[in-house]
Amino acid sequence: MNQDSHSSPVQSERWVGRATVVEVAGDIDLHRSSQFQQSLLDVVDRNPERIVVDLGGVGYMDSSGVASLVKLLSRTRKTGVGLRLVGLTRRVQSVFEITRLNTVFEICQTEEEALA
């Protein structure tokens, strides 16, 4: 489960209408957060109306990963882009709960819901 720390956690990006779905996989920890962050901010630069981050493939995320998403949120709010998270595993869900950020992010159960 220990991916190469240089490969980006962002596996793929695809357009669904005016929205971009970003699929993320692997552990997101101190070593991979900088890359994760950069990839996410690059997505904002492509001017989608909404970004859906699919965290279904993420088994473990530490607070640096959460901080990266907070940074993304702050950027999207400034540029008026919508941001939704989807497919949180239980463990990642716990991280959001314990940091009480589940109230700050729009967290959806399914991709359809996130794109609606």
């Binding site: 957060s33 900088s34 640096s64 901080a67 940074k71």
Partner: peptide
């Protein structure tokens, strides 16, 4: 190696 803003958030 995280940047300052990320560390502040953390």
């Amino acid at each position: 190696d995280l940047d300052e803003a990320t560390i502040d958030i953390m």
